[in-house]
Amino acid sequence: MKILIIEDEEGLRESIEEYFTEAGNICETAASYAAALAKVELYRYDCILLDITLPGGNGIDILKKLKANNYTDGVLIISAKNSLDDRLQGLDLGADDYLVKPFHLSELKARVSAIIRRKMFNGSNVLNFNELSIDLMAKTVAVNGTPVKFTRKEFALLIYFISNKGKVISKNAIAEHLWGDGIDLVNNFDFIYSHIKNIRKKIMEAGGKDYIYAAYGMGYKFADQ
């Protein structure tokens, strides 16, 4: 996968680059409007992470250029402006998704993966991981071909894990992904554990492997070790 990160804030840009760089991924970065424009004119990407406020210009204009040239790069807008207008404008202009700062890198990765999946599978939308086969449209999971019933949250969590496979995901990130921003009443995320336990149990009962590892009480990691 080829990803372009257009973000002027160095700290954030580096973190995203580091998080996304792994086997099979190529990450390029641009820190200004001019640099970003030069890159999108020359190369095509699977997904472009686009900051709206850039030195030298507005990220929305880059999006317009892409669409004017009929480039099919996936575009995810990352912005500090949580304004509905920006969001709607961005999506109207053909951005695939919109994420407001601050966000968890795992959330960003999940969103980017979803965009790339949509582009690559052309609507078939079945996600395979070893013996697991997940139909994203029908929202069903099969282990070695045997259908396994997952609840809405378990399903969402499983996809989140697979999108971030090999990464430690903090409990905060999981909670925000499943329950949204409203979940500020809990400092102990014990109830996440019950979902994870269920996922493990269901996969293993259907003959699958246990891929979920607890990471020092901070979070969980989905990996095929």
């Binding site: 973190s15 998080y19 700062k101 601050p102 966000f103 890198l105 990130a173």
Partner: peptide, 15 residues
């Protein structure tokens, strides 16, 4: 927002 986003992403990277 930006510094918070940086802290957040650095924590995600750190773990």
């Amino acid at each position: 927002l930006t510094p918070i986003a940086v802290i957040n992403s650095k924590l995600d990277t750190l773990i």
